[in-house]
Simulated assay, not measured.
Amino acid sequence: MRLRNLRNVIALTMLLGGTVVATAPACRGDDAWPVHTVKIIVPFAAGSANDVSARFYADGLAKRWGKPVVVENRPGADAVVGGGAFANARDDHTLLYGTASMLTVNPLLQDSLPYDPSRDMVPIASTASSILVIAVQDRLPVRSLQELMQLARSKPGELSWSSGPSLPHFVYAAMLVRHALEQVYVPYRDATAQQADFGEGRVQILSHALLAVRAPVAAGKARILAVTSPARQPSLPDVPTVAEAGFAEMEIEGLAGLFGWRDMPPALRDRISADVQAVAADPIVRSRIEASGAQVLGSTPVEFSAAIERQRARIEQINRLVNLKSAAK
């Protein structure tokens, strides 16, 4: 009888132990992760600048992890669709390649989001920053932002401008309000038509990503007056920053990075961050991402979170000048 009871105790102990193992999180933050394919959700269209960067990082991470890393595009509604898909996945092998604006801008544009910006997206590492520029059509007789503002002040309502969505639009619109300048905004649904009109002078000013103005600049039909990034860009060494040009309030980064799921173990977050930084340091990866019109970053979770907070503060300043909901229409 005593032997039978001992066997029962052992069996019960093994059963409870198995239950604990079965219900423990699959992800402990140690070298066991990843145990299978990792998916990276990109809330932008295939072929976009962020998609291109995400795929380079996915390839580099796959090599380091020894497991496939696949990219899934979920574009729509200023990245809200992809953000919601990531938050609802609740999967410890799904990451998000998103932008800081998903946390800083979208909450001001929409009353309800399918994700909680403060909990559902854990910053892991910054990856790249789209280079944002202020460019003018070549026939406009200005060589600096100061000269552009002087010309705009002398010709109220005569100059026309257009922009990329979100950050490039809000930054320029706020500048016009801050300096009491009147310019005509020309909206576009088709980026190709926008670039063609800018190159031909039908739109005189463009606040956009570098990639959008490269062709007309290369053709001698436009020139870049300033970049909105905190420092000059290696690919544009002669172009001043907006701060150097006297418009520090226009400084902002098109910040992108990798995010983890809610309640991601800090140890795993830090390990993935280190791997992202290693990929970012690869000269081949750097050259390819820079060719797409972006600056390669790579940071710790703390640094990435701090950069997001800096952008949030700037966006809140802009929102006090220009109601983002109205400006986005």
Rank of each mutant, 00 (worst) to 15 (best):
S126T: 10
L109Q: 12
T37G: 01
N73W: 13
T99H: 08
S118I: 07
D116H: 08
P34W: 01
A89E: 04
H36T: 12
A100E: 05
F44Q: 12
H36R: 14
R74Y: 09
V52Y: 01
A128C: 01
V52K: 00
D30Y: 05
L95A: 02
L103W: 06
P43G: 08
V81Q: 13
S101Y: 07
H93N: 14
L103E: 11
R90W: 03
N73L: 13
L96V: 03
L113A: 10
G76I: 14
P75T: 15
S53M: 02
S118V: 11
D91Y: 08
L108E: 13
P114A: 07
P68C: 10
Q110Y: 15
I41R: 00
A45Y: 11
Q110G: 04
D111P: 08
A79C: 09
Y115D: 07
G82M: 06
G76F: 14
V122N: 07
S112T: 15
D111K: 15
Y115P: 07
T104R: 08
R119F: 10
R64M: 10
A125L: 09
P107K: 09
I124R: 01
A128K: 01
V122A: 08
F86L: 03
P117T: 12
D120S: 06
V81P: 07
I124C: 05
I124V: 14
V71L: 06
L95P: 03
D31P: 03
Y57A: 00
T94Y: 04
L61F: 06
P34Y: 01
N88M: 07
W65N: 12
Y57E: 00
A32C: 11
D111N: 15
R119T: 13
Q110H: 15
D116E: 11
Q110L: 12
V81L: 14
P123G: 07
D30M: 06
R119P: 04
S112P: 02
T127R: 02
D91C: 08
K39I: 00
G60N: 03
D92A: 09
P107A: 09
P75M: 14
A46M: 14
A45P: 06
G76C: 15
G76D: 15
A49C: 00
A89I: 02
S48M: 00
A128T: 05
